[in-house]
Design a protein around this nucleic acid. Structure first.
Length: 571
RNA sequence: CGGGGCGUAGCGCAGUUUGGCUAGCGCGCCUGCCUUGGGAGCAGGAGGUCGGAGGUUCAAAUCCUCUCGCCCCGACCA
């Protein structure tokens, strides 16, 4: 491709809409333009990269035995209703009324659609297992789209769904996809880590997230850098906090804390570290109020709480309920004298002589102790890991960092096949629910997270596998006939004879501008025909990433470039 | 959804507080000259419903009302 014939609008300045490096660079390098909040147009360069990613995904999915399909973006609401997810997606679902008044959704994901197809077309164990996938645009009305293509209302996802006759089969299908994901991200040149995750709104039990470590990531990773334990924030466990057995239990004392409601306020007022305090949070579970006790510096993990309570629906109690249950204004709840069920986080059970609310307005209690002063009905791990917590496997310090989620694999089990009655007849003619798995990859996120991790002050540094062009040929002076002829022959030789993807910067611009642009768009190999060519017939090859340069004569260009491409492919 | 900010040429911005000549600057764009190894220089030029609607006024980018769009922070933990 000749630069002058394409549309590669580079920008010298960062547009004000962009906040993070990848977003700025994608705009400056002419990959994307924003059309409206959370929706981007991919320009020629961006489209080339997008297709590179898609091809890698497709190749590795096929290699993993998955079969490609293409499902509609338009979805009827009744399937979502049937699976029970209409209310779960809620406002995130983008819907519209057609001319007949029927409401249709733009698909946020496709479990229901694929399950519908499979339940209609697959009836026998002989047709299983099967894994189907597609690469398609998903629509979600994000409350707050941000960071360019990292969180948008419209994004491209590779989603795959496996159907098996039993859990052994599911494990095999899962492993195939897991391995395919590793190959995909490896080929994209991404540094990623795999963490145990909670399956959240998708349902199911086991799941793993593929994360690219990044300070702009919206997900939190908990890792043990010693033994390799890793999990996301919802899922992460920590070693139990040891109980101090050598403490003398002191007498309970009431203390006035007028208008000090939050842990922070009380902690400041009484000059006590929050980790010596216990907060009492009232939830409604199954219509009944329950009290959840947490150390002052800890936070409730509702996912864990829900599990600890046996997967009942939970919600924070409203103000009236709290006042009714505690007999005090909000902010002074405590376990002593409470009539509700009390569930205590493990850290609370290890605490003695702590400070907590007195169930009496403007009052807290000092020196409260479990067992002596109140009864704990259930001890469980219902909090998020914080700094200082230890690894549940090896007791080493846990590391807390951020990451971008680029892939997620779930073992769904029968959640959707039960709800949508996707059944098959087994070898003995008995009807069974199919065992499902689902597997997603954020295609746009691969691009953004790669740039986030691979750029310098001059621009993007593409790995060869994703680069829009492998080589850029830069004639320094397009008005110099000899240089231009040489540039054209190199361009022809490389692209025609060897199929290398070459961009020829044939613009009549000053060399500085062309070099800056070449660095900005991040093409791995530059071939420069300039002063050295006019003087000594030597052509310069310069690598974007390392800055290495080579002076080559024309007849050796092709073999040198091939060799460099091979090296780059491996690195 | 709550809070904050912004909207003036393709991009980045000034001007708005205190209304007043033809609305400016840098980059980019067009023409010419010059220049050709890291975002040159000179000269000339095109490009604006000042987000939109309504209002106040002799006069509105500027004041008032409504409205649309975009960005950032936060989102129930007593």
């Amino acid at each position: 491709m000749k630069w002058s014939q394409s549309l590669i609008p580079t920008l010298k300045e960062s547009p004000s809409e962009a906040e993070i490096d990848s977003h700025k660079l994608m705009i400056r390098a002419g990959l994307i333009r924003r059309i409206t909040a959370g929706a981007y147009a991919y320009l020629p360069l961006g489209t080339l990269v997008l297709n590179k990613v898609i091809n890698i995904v497709r190749e590795e999915m096929n290699r993993g035995g998955a079969i490609e399909v293409f499902l509609p973006a338009l979805q009827p609401l009744d399937l979502l209703e049937e699976s029970g997810r209409l209310s779960i997606f809620g406002e995130d679902l983008i819907t519209f009324k057609d001319r007949h008044g029927k409401t249709t959704a733009l698909g946020p994901t496709h479990e229901e659609i694929i399950t519908d197809i499979v339940r209609n077309e697959v009836n026998s164990y002989r047709q299983l297992p099967i894994t189907l996938y597609q690469i398609q645009t998903k629509f979600r009305d994000e409350t707050r789209p941000r960071f360019g293509v990292l969180r948008s209302k419209e994004f491209i996802m590779k989603d795959a769904y496996s159907f098996d006759v039993d859990y052994d089969g599911l494990n095999k299908s899962y492993k195939l996809m897991y391995d395919a994901y590793c190959r995909i991200f490896d080929r994209c040149g991404l540094d990623y880590i795999v963490v145990e995750a909670d399956s959240g709104a998708m349902g199911g039990d086991v799941s793993h997230e593929f994360m690219v470590p990044s300070s702009v990531g919206e997900d939190i990773l908990i890792r043990c850098l010693k033994c390799g334990y890793s999990a996301n924030r919802e899922r992460a466990e920590s070693a139990p906090i040891p109980k101090d057995n050598h403490v003398t239990l002191q007498t309970v004392k009431e203390v006035l804390t007028p208008n000090k409601r939050t842990i922070q306020e009380v902690s400041g007022f009484l000059k006590v570290n929050p980790n010596r305090m216990v907060k009492t949070i009232i939830y409604i579970s199954n219509g009944q109020p329950i009290a959840v006790l947490l150390r002052g510096d800890h936070e409730v993990n509702e996912t864990k709480l829900t599990k600890a309570l046996g997967l009942e629906n939970i919600a924070l109690a409203d103000q009236n309920t709290i006042e009714h249950v505690t007999g005090a204004h909000v902010g002074f709840a405590g376990p002593v004298g409470l009539k509700t069920k009390i569930i205590a986080d493990q850290a609370v059970s290890a605490l003695n002589n702590f400070i907590t609310g007195a169930n009496k307005s403007d009052t807290h209690l000092l020196n409260v102790n479990p067992e002596r002063d109140f009864k704990i009905d259930q001890i469980a791990n219902v909090r998020y890991v914080i700094n200082g917590d230890k690894c549940p496997k090896c007791n080493h310090d846990l590391d807390i960092s951020q990451g971008i989620e680029i892939g997620h694999v779930f073992k769904l089990g029968t959640k959707y096949s039960d709800a949508l009655r996707a059944k098959f007849l087994d070898t003995s003619g008995k009807e069974k629910s199919m065992i499902m798995g689902c597997y997603g990859i954020g295609v746009n996120r691969i691009i953004a997270s790669l740039i986030e991790r691979s750029h310098d002050e001059n621009g993007i540094i593409w790995p060869l596998s994703l680069a829009p062009y492998e080589v850029i040929v830069i004639p320094v002076n397009v008005n110099d006939t000899n240089s231009m002829q040489m540039a054209n022959s190199i361009y022809d030789e490389l692209s025609d004879d060897t199929g290398i993807e070459v961009l020829l910067d044939d613009r009549d611009l000053r060399p500085g501008v062309k070099f800056k642009d070449a660095d900005l768009i991040g093409v791995p190999i530059k071939i420069i025909i300039g002063k050295k060519y006019t003087e000594t017939k030597e052509i310069e090859i310069k690598l974007r990433k390392s800055g290495e340069t080579f002076l080559i004569r024309h007849e050796d260009i092709k073999s040198k470039v091939k060799k460099l491409l091979e090296t780059l492919l491996k690195s």
